[in-house]
Nucleic acid binder design. Structure first.
Lengths: 107, 107
DNA sequence: ATAATATATCAAGATATATTGATTTAATAT
DNA sequence: ATATTAAATCAATATATCTTGATATATTAT
């Protein structure tokens, strides 16, 4: 019950839906990339990413200082249906501004 | 986007999850039945049922004064996956105390 | 070591959602 | 018409969630 609610409430926020769509489109990105692309401060994105991770949607690959977030694979049925539904929405996404590849760690 | 969020936020409440499981198990019930079974006041249940209806999970059949709520059929893929997930939770449900059949309208 | 960068966490205030009791609407019965 | 019952809505409060700026942790570079 709690686990399901964790997953369900992860879907209950516009920013998080957009983050899922963005990561689904662009693959693994770190917080600084999202920060630039979404124009949101780091702590806000970090918090939302944590909730998406706890909800079972994301995997995190640490690479030194960088944390790369991407859609977890394979997703279970409910989560992948949720993602499919999100794809169908055709959400308008901000342009990707990728800082992480210009310096330091390359995934 | 808004439609999806409406559906997602419908799932973001313990009472509503239980209501879905209860209606899934017992079929069409009206608010007074749920009120007795769940031991919650009518306005609270009415509000949750409205949210579940707006989220696309429920149908309502009016029969005079009574409003019978049941799981909408067919559910689309995301919603039926959500319901399948809820079934898997094996939520402990309160006993069904059905008032609506003892008087007035029979569905 | 110190400095710089990336990320995570915390505490506060702001915002949104849920609950309650009262009121309203609507159908039925007397 | 009046009374009764079922359900929906409203306004106030309680509770939960989000956002922000500050701080903490952790890795890398100098």
């Amino acid at each position: 019950m709690d686990v399901f609610l964790e997953t369900a409430s992860a879907l209950n926020d516009e920013t998080r839906i957009k983050l899922l769509a963005f990561l689904d489109t662009h693959g693994a990105l770190c917080v600084c990339d999202l920060q630039e692309s979404f124009g949101m401060i780091q702590s806000r994105l970090s918090r939302h990413l944590k909730i998406l991770k706890e909800g079972g949607f994301l995997r995190v690959d640490r690479c030194g200082t960088w944390a790369y977030y991407s859609i977890r694979s394979p997703l279970d049925r409910f989560r992948s249906e949720a993602l499919a539904e999100i794809r169908c929405l055709g959400i308008e996404l901000p342009p990707l501004i990728k800082l992480s590849q210009t310096e330091g760690c390359k995934l």
